[in-house]
Nucleic acid binder design. Structure first.
Lengths: 162, 162
DNA sequence: TATTGTTATACTCTATAACTATA
DNA sequence: TATAGTTATAGAGTATAACAATA
């Protein structure tokens, strides 16, 4: 290699590289670091469709569970009921989801995806699959499986251990 | 087993269980779900010491890298410089970290941990280790290793693929 | 001209209390 | 008395622009 270093600005070569390796051993730290970058990235990938990860999740769940109630949906997604309202409003306003009054309980609504909703969901799912392939490109099948299962185990252990 | 179901309130048995299994296949979703519960939990574990995960991370990094600059520290922790200011202020106000003017650069400060800082850090590290043991209690050593490495690979792939 | 630390600011995400209408 | 959906609100966390002092 020719000595490329001399072409770098002095302040770049002078800045020491600091590693967070010690903190990476803590699952809480590692998971959080990864979550923050991957979350920003999936949101960028979905933005052109008018979706974020959370609204994509809601749309997916509604498509798979016709007439699901908001309270039930919020619980499944691990979020608080009040925070779901704005997201469902958003999806309803663009015509991808509708609130259908529950005939047996006048307090409740059943959520349903519309044809237009299925349309964007199809595109969004393709986008999410491509994103998944990109971010896990350096993992083999074993690693992917273990990762997903380990995350679930950690979540469950964290919840029960309170 | 005797039929315990009849003792449960009717609204509990009537509420259907909705699964997010389809979404769990997306790393972005799984990582995020786990991050949110584990992050809240580690913060609860550290609260009695007057620390959060972020301030614990800062304290750990300062202890391991005496005279580190804030810009360098922020970069290592994957956060923006302005957001580090309040945290360092916090740690300095309670006397766990001090800002020492850099003799060679009057714009900069070198961060150093104090004796009191080392004291809480020691307790906090024990707390973090106990927390780690708790949340990963159902993982074997292979799973733990693969998890941490996979998360780093994903983070790197996400960053570069931008 | 670029960098360090800083201020101000805004936007997202998350959590809680409390309301209404029903059950 | 409890639940479904909602409103309002407050607290974290995160990101960007811009400033003064200095390199």
């Amino acid at each position: 290699m020719t000595q490329k270093q001399t072409t770098l600005p002095r302040h770049k070569t002078n800045r020491p590289t600091v590693s967070d390796q010690v903190l990476r051993k803590f699952t809480s730290y590692s998971v959080r670091r990864t979550a923050s970058v991957i979350y920003a990235d999936i949101n960028r990938s979905l933005k052109h469709l008018g979706l974020r990860m959370i609204s994509f999740s809601v749309l997916t769940m509604v498509a798979r569970n016709p007439h699901i109630r908001q309270a039930n949906l919020a619980e499944a997604l691990g979020m608080e009921r009040p925070n779901l309202v704005a997201i469902v409003n958003e999806l309803q306003n663009v015509g991808w989801v509708i609130r259908i009054p529950d005939p047996t309980d006048r307090r409740a609504y059943g959520l349903r995806i519309t044809t237009a909703g299925r349309n964007v969901l199809s595109k969004a799912t393709a986008e999410a699959n491509a994103h998944e392939a990109k971010v896990t490109q350096h993992l083999d099948d074993d690693e992917r499986q273990i990762l997903i299962r380990a995350l679930k185990k950690i979540e469950d252990a964290t919840k029960q251990g309170g």
